[in-house]
Simulated assay, not measured.
Amino acid sequence: MHKSHNDDIGFQVQQISHLVKQLQNERLVKEDLSISHMNVMFVLYEEDRVNQSHIQNNLGIKASSLSKLIDILIQKGLVTRESPAGDARSKIICLTDLGKEKQSQLYNVRDELEKQLTEHLSEAETKQLARMLSQVKSNIVKE
């Protein structure tokens, strides 16, 4: 006998992912950003002045998708793209002053959502969930 579709872990993760993206994008409207833009910014908040491939590997997205995201962030004045001397193919992405100023606002948006997601979980359960999700991800992504 097969289990219910609603008991399928992959289905639940997919549904949660979809709902989280919707909630996050709703909250980011006031920042004129999407969750994809915010994820790029978070990589840069952890380590500014990195090459595009570092961001791409960190987020697990295609180079063409990342390039489009960075183009939009450049248009918004949040990042710059530089070519190091002697290597026109390599692109270094840097936060602008405006991008740095957005950091606390973006972390607040993320923290508000985290609070909603874990509202009925204890601190220990929240930590356990984070560990379990990390393990599930590592089962999929072999680094």
Rank of each mutant, 00 (worst) to 15 (best):
K102M: 13
R110K: 08
A124L: 11
D97C: 12
D32E: 15
S67H: 10
L23N: 10
G10T: 11
D97Q: 03
E125A: 09
K127D: 13
E123V: 13
L73T: 06
K62F: 02
G86V: 00
D71Q: 12
M132F: 13
K68A: 12
M132E: 15
S17E: 09
L117S: 06
A88N: 08
K127F: 08
V50E: 00
S138Q: 14
S134N: 13
V13H: 10
Q52A: 05
N139Q: 13
R49H: 14
I55H: 00
M38N: 00
I93A: 01
K91E: 12
N108I: 14
T118W: 00
V40L: 03
V40P: 07
V136Q: 09
M1H: 15
I140Q: 11
Q12N: 07
I35P: 00
K3G: 15
K76N: 04
T126C: 05
S134C: 10
E125R: 02
H2N: 14
S53W: 04
G10L: 11
E123R: 11
A85P: 04
S64Q: 12
D7H: 03
S4H: 13
N51R: 09
S36T: 15
L28E: 03
I92R: 11
Q24M: 14
S122T: 15
H54W: 00
R81M: 15
K30E: 12
L95K: 05
G60C: 14
K62Y: 09
I70L: 13
I93F: 03
I55R: 05
Q24F: 06
H120S: 05
L23T: 10
S67I: 00
F42P: 00
K3A: 14
Q22T: 05
S90C: 12
V109A: 05
H2D: 15
S122R: 07
